[in-house]
Design a protein around this nucleic acid. Structure first.
Length: 494
RNA sequence: GUCCCCGUCGUCUAGCCUGGCCUAGGACAUCGCCCUUUCACGGCGGUAACACGGGUUCAAAUCCCGUCGGGGACGCCA
């Protein structure tokens, strides 16, 4: 899977998705992946997956697994794959080069103890004067003596110095050097920081476009500084508006829970293509009111110009109770749209594992018969379990016999109808048209409306009022099961 | 605190750069009607937004300034 970069330098774009394996793949990361992928496919470029795993403390194998699991479900693929932890030599080499040019300095200040508590980040810390100004000789001497140090970038902070770049989404960006702190390049254990490793790899992998979340917009000034210090032209940047929760804050695994995990969508029965479609509509627009789009259509329509600047709310419900309530209604609608657009055979195949996983033994041929009856009635693949349950079970779960009583009818009518059905059905061929004719004729003989005839039968065979159309249902259920269930309904009624 | 970004219906968005065609369009959600053997699908219709205040202009959602609001970054995390 580990590919070597193409040795022939190509003008085609090279983009990358660089997650850090510190948790499951969340929807914001998934969207970043998708936008990068779309851009690569649209332009005939190369999609690179790079695991940014330089934080040994927090990286876990479980997280790596979870990220791959999510990406595999998306089923988009990538062309090259790298692991940052295997490229340490390259990172140190770049740090060295920057130090030698005098653009970085050693900071012998002991590492801060309280790491994760934000209190330290509140003030306006820019640099440690004693360290920034230390002579080269003293610095070399102390380093040679084995004293640990962090390597910091010497940010040019003379009056009037600015760092600038043009973002493909946010436009011209300028920041005074005096407003950028002397960020670390190397930790005191010699490991590269994210900023260094990321830039060194982006330069080495000849990344042409960095498409990532807007939370990195202000970090980008540091990255521009690193690229320039190391003698590289910075790539094109394109920052994506953030995906935020209904409370307005950026989606976080810790605060918002499983709703932000890609696998949650998978497990709830989303189609990957629908999920991708939904994510694309968050922070990007094809500008022509199109919403339901296939992968191919998305590839054809995607452009950096279509990306918005304002954050987008993923409209899920915080205290989620049912799947319907958990997810953004538009995601559910889009999923239903994609389901309706699927060929019966295709949908059937995707439904089968869901049904089997729930513990029902269903033959593929039978699933193929059931699928057309529920395609317009399910929004998530998992809905098959509640929409078609009566096809799977041998014995219907108990239901209220009062349900058997038709509109504007009484128990006597229910009884009459079911008995009539019991009498007529054995001699009817169980296909749509014959059933239709026979049951309508029966209703007429009984002097009841068609609906009054159908409802008791529907409840008898399905166990509830809301179900797929009756004749098709009976056809799939078969004569034997139908008559048995009518018999049971009759017993329940008395 | 410092710096950066953003602000059109409840939500996703079109329009903004290149002012007038905007009595602001589409979609989801919601409400109502129709279709109909139930449900669903489908069809039709309704409610609903240019954050606010100043400019500039014959004319501003669109340009300028300010205010307010929201978000993000500031770590030897990524």
């Amino acid at each position: 899977m580990m590919n070597l970069p193409n040795p022939v330098s190509s003008p085609k774009p090279r983009v990358r998705f660089a997650p850090s394996p510190t948790g499951f793949l969340h929807v914001g990361s998934a969207r970043t992946f998708i936008f990068n992928w779309l851009y690569a496919r649209r332009t005939g470029g190369t999609m690179i997956l790079r695991l940014d795993d330089t934080d040994v403390e927090r990286n876990t194998d479980a997280s790596v697994q979870s990220i791959f699991e999510g990406l595999e479900w998306l089923d988009l693929g990538w062309d090259e794959e790298y692991k940052q932890s295997a490229r340490g030599a390259l990172h140190r080499q770049m740090a060295d080069a920057i130090l030698r040019k005098g653009l970085a300095y050693r900071d012998f200040t002991p590492a801060h103890t309280g790491d994760s508590e934000k209190s330290g980040a509140q003030g306006t810390w820019l640099f440690n004067p004693g360290m920034r100004e230390m002579s080269r000789d003293e610095s070399d001497r102390r380093a040679a003596a084995g004293e640990p140090f962090a390597l910091r970038f010497r940010v040019p902070r003379e009056a009037g110095t600015v760092v600038r770049f043009t973002d493909a989404v946010y436009g011209e960006q300028v920041k005074a050097g005096a407003d950028i702190e002397d960020f670390a390049l190397l930790r005191s254990d010699g490991m590269p920081t994210y900023h260094l490793a990321s830039c060194a790899d982006d330069a080495d992998l000849r990344i042409s476009h960095i498409i990532r979340g807007q939370d990195h917009l202000s970090n980008t000034f540091k990255h521009v500084l690193i690229f320039q210090a190391a003698g590289y032209t910075p790539p094109q940047f394109a920052h994506l508006p953030l995906l935020v929760a209904p409370d307005g804050t950026k989606l976080s695994k810790r605060r918002h829970g499983p709703v932000v995990s890609v696998t949650t969508y998978r497990d709830a029965g989303f189609l990957p293509e629908a999920f991708i479609n939904f994510l694309c509509l968050l922070g990007w627009s094809p500008k022509n009111d199109r919403e339901h789009m296939s992968r191919e259509e998305l590839v054809g329509a995607f452009s950096l110009e279509g990306i918005n600047r304002a954050n987008a709310v993923v409209n899920f419900k915080e205290p989620a109770t049912t799947a319907e309530e958990t997810f953004d209604p538009k995601a559910i609608w889009l999923n239903a749209e994609h389901i309706r657009g699927l060929a019966i055979a295709d949908l059937s195949q995707r439904l089968l594992p869901v049904v089997r996983q729930a513990g029902f033994a269903v033959a593929p041929e039978r699933m193929l018969q059931i699928t057309p009856l529920i395609r317009e009635r399910i929004k998530l693949l998992r809905d098959v379990l509640t929409a078609a349950d009566f096809f799977f079970v041998d014995q219907l779960p108990p239901y209220d016999p009062a349900e058997l009583i038709p509109q504007k009818g009484d128990p006597a009518m229910a009884l009459k109808v079911l008995q009539k059905a019991q009498a007529v059905l054995p001699n009817v061929e169980f296909r749509h048209d014959p059933l239709d004719q026979a049951l309508r004729a029966a209703a007429q003989e009984l002097g009841v409306k068609a609906g009054q005839m159908f409802q008791p039968i529907r409840v008898a065979v399905c166990g509830r009022k809301n179900a797929p159309p009756l004749f098709e249902t009976l056809e799939v259920l078969g004569k034997e099961t139908t008559l048995r269930r009518i018999e049971q309904a009759l017993e329940n009624l008395s």
